[in-house]
Measured scan of single mutants.
Amino acid sequence: HNLTITQGKLFFHYNPKLCLSEIHKMEEVSGTKGRQERNDIALKTNGDQASCENELLKFSYIRTSFDKILLRWEPYWPPDFRDLLGFMLFYKEAPYQNVTEFDGQDACGSNSWTVVDIDPPLRSNDPKSQNHPGWLMRGLKPWTQYAIFVKTLVTFSDERRTYGAKSDIIYVQTDATNPSVPLDPISVSNSSSQIILKWKPPSDPNGNITHYLVFWERQAEDSELFELDYCLKGLKLPSRTWSPPFESEDSQKHNQSEYEDSAGECCSCPKTDSQILKELEESSFRKTFEDYLHNVVFVPRKTSSGTGAEDPRPSRKRRSLGDVGNVTVAVPTVAAFPNTSSTSVPTSPEEHRPFEKVVNKESLVISGLRHFTGYRIELQACNQDTPEERCSVAAYVSARTMPEAKADDIVGPVTHEIFENNVVHLMWQEPKEPNGLIVLYEVSYRRYGDEELHLCVSRKHFALERGCRLRGLSPGNYSVRIRATSLAGNGSWTEPTYFYVTDYLDVPSNIA
């Protein structure tokens, strides 16, 4: 807008934040220059609390790290170098490059900038070799853009010569660093050979998330399962459950009422301010606690030095998902009996873990797994792929695949051998790939016309006998059925096997 004052003059007093240069501009645009008398524009009460600059400061050096910015700028000295009290560095987070010096300023003089007072450097006698002032900004957020400017702080001049310097606002972004852990990993099994893994992005990506790394490792069953005799009275049979499938998407929606109208769909109840505040506090606490764990609990591995020492970490090797089922080394339970199943799973520490690289999504279907087997899954978020990966501390989750139908069934015939004193040795093959492992066998036998009897055969007993022995049988026709019990439950009964026990007292003698 054009402003013209045809008559009258300007009068400025007691404006401590208004620089004289701005008042002189007002004289020019209003056409009143030359009308004012000496005392109409006070030299001592206008701009006496402001830094009124008329020179431009330029930054000469900028260096960044993930949490620091090192700045240096060209030296500046007023005509009387004693008038320079120091520099004021202003900075704040700036997602967009549209910041002005006066953003967030209120009537009390406060604003949204963080201000650092910096002492002037030592003055050199040689004007050509003056030290460049600077400042190291610490405690910054990774991968965050900051708006920065600097200006001088000078003393009051009796001659009211307006001098000083100020830089333009520059924008500097800190470097990326390792992201925080992925949030809320959930693993479920939808079949006997697959596990579905879902997660949420890290709360602090500290860069642009480029991919996720998912490692999985087959877990050995508890050692007590191999040692305890679950045929003993009072000892509860062990059981394991597989990871249940995901709930429906509708039930997972946030901010939804727990109660549904019987007449149909209901609208979600909005969260109160107290609920939102509580969630923010919980989120802040979780982030602080995660940072504490990362800094205190997890110790970084030592990389190899120039002395030739090897990095103890196993090298990563990509495998196809079809090879995942046989990740671990199978060892027989008892070496003397080769027909026992290889369900003991000690994992070799030198073995390469299978892994998958996930790009542009937060889910993965891990296939080719062994049925009813526990897996430990390790999830890392990465925001750099080359020249070397920059990934987060791992988040861990466990899951067990679903049982395989008929995996616990005894394959092959049940054979028998009759000894003296009416002892019958029953023999059968253990299931080759049971659900988890076989903890015991149930032997059901009966003599024709009598009630059915049951015998429990422990895992250890089966390994020693290759089956079991029935003792003290009365003469007669017998039928026997056997079924295995694994961590997933009972298998199917075998087809009945028949044998006849004679009275050993009636056996004919070869003595003449």
Results as ranks from 00 to 15, higher is better:
Asp323Ser: 04
Leu235His: 11
Tyr292Asp: 08
Val457Ala: 03
Glu389Ile: 06
Arg483Gly: 01
Pro332Gly: 08
Val457Cys: 12
Arg376Leu: 08
Ser492Lys: 01
Cys267Lys: 08
Ala405Phe: 13
Glu247Gln: 14
Arg447Lys: 05
Ala309His: 14
Phe372Met: 10
Lys287Pro: 10
Ala381Met: 01
Gly207Ala: 05
Thr288Ile: 15
Arg316Ala: 14
Ser444Met: 07
Pro496Lys: 15
Glu356Leu: 08
Leu440Thr: 03
Val297Lys: 12
Val297Met: 07
Lys236Asn: 09
Asn255Phe: 02
Thr303Asp: 08
Asp408Val: 01
Asn255Trp: 15
His454Arg: 11
Leu225Gly: 02
Val443Asn: 00
Leu237Asp: 12
Gly476Ala: 02
Leu437Ala: 11
Arg218Ser: 12
Lys432Asn: 11
Tyr504Trp: 09
Arg390His: 04
Thr386Met: 02
Gly306Ile: 13
Phe372Thr: 03
Phe246Val: 07
His371Ile: 12
Pro332Tyr: 05
Ile418Lys: 06
Ile209Pro: 11
Tyr504Arg: 03
Cys269Asn: 06
Leu228Gly: 14
Thr241Phe: 15
Ala405Ser: 08
Val439Ser: 06
Trp216Thr: 04
Arg466Ile: 08
Thr497Cys: 15
Phe226Pro: 08
Lys271Ala: 14
Met427Leu: 08
Asn206Gln: 02
Leu453Asp: 07
Asn295Ala: 10
Arg318Ile: 13
Val299Ser: 06
Asp450Val: 06
Gln252Leu: 12
Asp506Lys: 03
Asp273Arg: 14
Glu465His: 11
Lys233Leu: 14
Lys271Phe: 11
Asp385Cys: 10
Gly489Pro: 02
Val327Gly: 09
Lys317Gln: 10
Gln219Phe: 13
Tyr504Pro: 05
Val359Ala: 08
Arg376Val: 04
Ser203Tyr: 04
Pro434Asp: 00
Lys317Cys: 07
Ile209Cys: 14
Ser486Gly: 08
Leu379Cys: 09
Val443Met: 05
Ala220Met: 05
Leu277Val: 07
Asn339Ala: 09
Phe499Pro: 01
Ile418Arg: 06
Val423Ala: 12
Glu452Val: 06
Leu464Asn: 11
Phe289Met: 05
Leu237Glu: 15
Ser248Trp: 04
Val457Met: 12
Ser492Arg: 02
Asn421Asp: 05
Ser479Trp: 07
Phe499Trp: 02
Asp222Thr: 05
Arg471Lys: 11
Gln256Asn: 04
Pro475Trp: 10
Gly234Asp: 11
Ser223Ile: 06
Thr347Val: 04
Ser251His: 15
Arg481Ile: 05
Val423Ser: 06
Lys278Asp: 15
Glu221Arg: 12
Leu379Thr: 04
Pro244Lys: 11
Gly368Tyr: 05
Thr307Met: 13
Cys468Leu: 05
His425Thr: 08
Pro349Thr: 08
Phe226Val: 08
Asp222Gly: 07
Thr272Glu: 13
Pro387His: 06
Val393Gly: 03
Cys269His: 05
Cys266Leu: 06
Pro387Ile: 15
Glu442Trp: 11
Pro270Glu: 04
Tyr448Trp: 03
Leu379Ala: 04
Tyr500Phe: 03
Ala394Cys: 10
Ala488Gln: 06
Ser479His: 03
Gln256Arg: 06
Cys231Trp: 03
Gly322Cys: 07
Arg400Pro: 01
Ala407Thr: 10
Glu362Thr: 10
Val501His: 03
Asn339Trp: 10
Val334Ser: 08
Ser367Ala: 15
Glu281Arg: 10
Tyr448Thr: 15
Glu258Asn: 05
Asp503Arg: 10
Val324Asp: 05
Thr272Ile: 07
Lys302Glu: 13
His371Gly: 12
Arg446Pro: 00
Met402Cys: 15
His211Arg: 05
Val365Lys: 02
Lys278Met: 05
Glu260Pro: 13
Ala407Arg: 11
Ser223Lys: 11
Ala330Leu: 02
Val329Lys: 07
Thr307Ala: 07
Ala399Ile: 11
Ser283Gln: 10
Asn477Ser: 05
His211Leu: 10
Gly207Leu: 02
Ala399Gln: 11
Pro245Val: 09
Glu389Ala: 06
Gly325Cys: 15
Asn383Tyr: 02
Leu237His: 03
Glu420Phe: 15
Asn206His: 09
Ser320Glu: 07
Gly489Phe: 07
Val359Lys: 12
Pro403Phe: 07
Asn295Leu: 04
Asp261Pro: 13
Lys302Val: 06
Pro332Met: 12
Ser284Val: 14
Arg390Gln: 08
Arg459Gly: 05
Val359Gln: 11
Ser398Trp: 04
Ser248His: 02
His294Lys: 15
Val359His: 12
His416Leu: 08
Val324Trp: 05
Ser268Gly: 08
Glu249Gln: 15
Ile482Gln: 02
Ala263Trp: 02
Val439Cys: 10
Arg318Pro: 10
Thr401Val: 06
Asp222Gln: 02
Thr303Met: 10
Lys236Ser: 12
His454Asp: 13
Lys406Gln: 12
Thr347Asn: 04
Glu265Phe: 08
Thr210Gly: 08
Asn421Thr: 09
Ser284Glu: 12
Ser479Met: 03
Asp503Val: 13
Leu464Gly: 12
Glu249Pro: 03
Pro349Val: 03
Arg301Pro: 10
Asp222Ser: 11
Val324Gln: 12
Pro431Val: 05
Ser344Gln: 03
Cys231Glu: 03
Asp409Gln: 05
Cys468Ile: 07
Phe499Tyr: 02
Cys231Gln: 02
Glu290Thr: 08
Pro354Lys: 06
Asn510Ala: 15
Tyr292Pro: 08
Lys278Phe: 10
Leu505Val: 07
Pro300Asp: 15
Pro332Gln: 13
Asn383Arg: 03
Cys269Pro: 05
Phe499Met: 03
Leu440Asn: 15
Leu487Asp: 09
Gly308Pro: 09
Thr241Lys: 09
Phe337Glu: 09
Arg471His: 05
Thr373Ser: 10
Asn208Pro: 10
Val414His: 01
Ser274Tyr: 13
Pro354Met: 13
Arg316Met: 06
Ala309Met: 06
Val331Phe: 12
Asn326Thr: 03
Val501Gly: 01
Leu426Met: 14
Tyr292Ile: 05
Leu321Ile: 10
Arg483Ala: 04
Phe499Cys: 03
Thr497Trp: 09
Cys266Arg: 09
Asn295Arg: 09
Ala395Met: 08
Phe246Thr: 11
Lys460Ala: 10
Gly491Ser: 09
Val424Arg: 04
Pro475Ile: 07
Lys361His: 05
Leu293Ala: 14
Arg301Leu: 11
Leu280Ser: 06
Ser458Pro: 06
Pro346Val: 13
Arg319Gly: 15
Phe419Lys: 05
Gly436Pro: 04
Gly306His: 14
Gly489Arg: 09
Cys391Pro: 01
Ser320Ala: 15
